[in-house]
């Protein structure tokens, strides 16, 4: 019983550290990138990795509250990231219900689906004066966010000592 509590505390600490680092990363620009539209969405990447790897076994309500926290710290509308995170959670639930995800390729496809869904919701719900959507910019952001998802996934696996 004591052992289980310690493990949970470690998970919570890991989560706090990664969340804090993400918060810092989201406010640091990548050198030589002048167009900030290229920047990956670090919070989306983090929560796709958390949800898909079932880290801490977060339920949908906790995830929504964390989404509201992200909205407060880095978002532009209250409820936007909350909506994204619960959509990711629900899609992940559906994927796990109907598919056995075992191979790396399947897992990476799962991350790709969740990242795409998150970015599309973000694009639709963002406040902007743009008349046209810049597809090239969106694709670059999508690729970069996906790479960050893979990176986060590796970090989470290392933290939780998975093979």
């Amino acid at each position: 019983m004591i052992k289980k509590n310690t493990f949970k505390r470690n998970e919570a600490l890991t989560f706090c550290i990664i969340f804090f680092v993400t918060l810092l990363l989201s406010r640091i620009n990548i050198p030589f990138i002048t167009n900030y539209g290229f920047m990956p969405d670090y919070f989306l990447a983090l929560f796709v990795s958390f949800v898909a790897s079932r880290f801490m076994h977060m339920n949908i309500y906790i995830l929504f509250l964390l989404g509201l926290l992200v909205d407060l710290l880095a978002g532009e509308l209250i409820g936007q990231y909350g909506l994204i995170f619960i959509s990711i959670y629900f899609t992940n639930f559906i994927l796990n219900k109907y598919f056995i995800i075992k191979s790396i390729l399947m897992r990476n496809s799962q991350y790709l689906i969740l990242t795409t869904l998150g970015l599309i919701i973000l694009l639709i719900s963002s406040l902007s004066y743009e008349l046209n959507i810049n597809i090239n910019l969106f694709i670059i952001k999508w690729v970069l966010t996906y790479l960050v998802v893979l990176l986060y996934n590796q970090i989470i696996r290392n933290f939780s000592n998975e093979t």
Partner: peptide, 28 residues
Amino acid sequence: KLFHNAQSPIFGFIILIVFSFSLMGLDH
């Protein structure tokens, strides 16, 4: 239930979707 043993989050999902849309509208 097929491959997922967890309880279905459909009820919470619908409630939270409505709540988040209300929050976004209110914020806007």
